[in-house]
C-alpha cells in the first residue's frame, strides 16, 4: 500500500513534467519525482519496529544487528538529496536566463529552441 502511494507520487511528478507549459512547473515536477524516489529507497530499508542505525551506550552488537534498519540506502540517499539541490540550482539558473532572453516562462513561446 505504501509503495503504491509512493509510485503514484512519482506519476504525479511525471504528469507535471510532461503536460505543463510553465518552465517553473516542470522544475517542480522534477522535484516531486526526486522526493518520491528518495522516499521509496528509504522505505525499502525499513524494518518493522526498527531503530535508527545508531549504537546506543551499553547495547549489545547482536541485539543492535537484529533491530536496526538498513543503513546502506540511507547513506546513498543522503548523497542523492545533496546532488538534487545542485541540479535544482542549475535548472533555476537556466530558467532565469531563458526568462531574460524571451521575457516569459512559457515553453511554447521559446521559438528559437526548436530544432
Amino acid at each position: 500500500m505504501i509503495y503504491y502511494l509512493c509510485f503514484v507520487l512519482f506519476l504525479i511528478g511525471l504528469y507535471g513534467v510532461t503536460c505543463k507549459k510553465n518552465i517553473v512547473k516542470i522544475i517542480l515536477g522534477l522535484c516531486i519525482m526526486e522526493y518520491s524516489v528518495n522516499l521509496f529507497l528509504i522505505l525499502l530499508g525499513y524494518r518493522k519496529n526498527g531503530i535508527p542505525p545508531i549504537i546506543n551506550k551499553g547495547m549489545e552488537i547482536n541485539e543492535f544487528y537484529n533491530k536496526a534498519v538498513d543503513p546502506l540506502p540511507q547513506a546513498l540517499v543522503l548523497t542523492s538529496i545533496v546532488i538534487g539541490l545542485g541540479i535544482l540550482s542549475l535548472m533555476v539558473a537556466i530558467a532565469i536566463r531563458l526568462y531574460q532572453r524571451y521575457g516569459t516562462f512559457d515553453i511554447t513561446e521559446m521559438k528559437k529552441l526548436k530544432g
Partner: peptide, 14 residues
C-alpha cells in the same frame, strides 16, 4: 518516523 534521522535533517536544510 522510519528511523532515518540523518536524512530528515538533511532534507530540512535542503
Amino acid at each position: 518516523l522510519i528511523g532515518a534521522p540523518d536524512i530528515a535533517i538533511t532534507q530540512m536544510v535542503v
